[in-house]
Amino acid sequence: MATYIARRLIQGLIVLLAVSMICFIIFRYMGDPVVTMAGRYATFEEREEVRRTFGLDQPMAVQYGRFLWNAVHGNFGKSYVSRVPALGLIMERFPATLELATTAIVVAFALGVILGVLVALKPYAMRNRLIMAASLGGISIPTFLSGILLIMIFSVYMGVLPPYGRGETVQIGFWRTGFLTLDGIRHLILPAATLALFQLAVLLRLTRAGMREVMAEEYIKTAWAKGLPPFKVIFKHALRNVLIPVVTITGLQFGELIAYSIVTETIFQWPGMGNLILTSFFENDQPVVVTYIMLAAVIIISMNIIVDILYALINPRIRYE
C-alpha cells in the first residue's frame, strides 16, 4: 500500500511538472514580459536594463529553474493589471469559489443518489418516468443557460432572489464567508442551484444505471431469498457497491466542477476565482492566468490521488503492483 501511495504521488508530481512547463511557456512567450514591465514606450537601453534585472537574458533552463523555484515558494509575480502579487489576488477570491462549489456538490450528491435509488427500484412507475424525463432535461440544458433562465424567473419576473454578487459577508480571520448572514444565503441560492443542476442530473443517472445493474446480480437475489428487509438489501448490499464508482467519478470529475464554476461565477458576477480568470484572459494578465492554472492543477491532482487511495482502500480487488 505504501508503495502504491508513493507511486501515485510521484505520478502526480510528474503531471504537475508538465503543467508548470506549459505555464512557463505561456508566461514567457505569450506577450513579451519585457514590454509589459518596462512599458510600451521604453527605450532600447531601458528594455535591456529590465531584461537583465529580471534575468530574462539567461538560458531557458536557468529561467525555468527560477520560475519553478519561485512557484514552489508561492511567488508567481505581480499582476500586470493591478500590480499586486498574483497568488494573493487569487487566494482572496478562493473562499467565495469554495463555498459555492461545496454547497453545489453536497446538494447534487445527496439529491442525485437518493433520487437515483428511488428511480432504479421502480423504473417503469409514472412518477419515476417523470423524474427521468426531468433528468434528461438536466443534462440537456447547459449550465450557462440554466443560470440565465433562473435569473429570468426568480429575479426579473418574481423578484424574490438577488441575481448578482455575494451579498453581505462576514470576515473570520483570512476567510470571508457568506454562510453566516441571511443576505449571503439568499445570494447563494441561485448560483448554487445552477452549479448543482447539471451534476445532480449526472449523478442521478449514474446511480440509477448502477443500481439497475446491481439489482440484477445473483448476490442481491440471495439477499432477497434470505428474507432480509428491503431497506437492508437496497442500502447495505446494493447501494454500497454502486456508490464506489459514483464517488470515484465525482472525485475524478473535479476539473468539470471548476470549469462550470467559471461559467456560474460569470453569470452571477460571483466574486470568485473563475470570474477573475476570465477577466485576466481578456486583459492578457499572464501572471494571474499562470497562477490560476497551477492552483487548479494542484487541486485536481490532489483530489485524484485522494480518490485513488480511498478507492484502493475500499476495494480489496485492486492490486498495488
Binding site: 505561456i26 468539470e256 471548476i258 470549469a259 487548479a296
Partner: peptide, 19 residues
Amino acid sequence: ADTFFSFSTTFMAFLFLGI
C-alpha cells in the same frame, strides 16, 4: 488519458482558447 480526463474537456478547451 487519465490526466486529461480529470482536467475535463470543458476546462482544457476553455484554458486553451482563453490563452
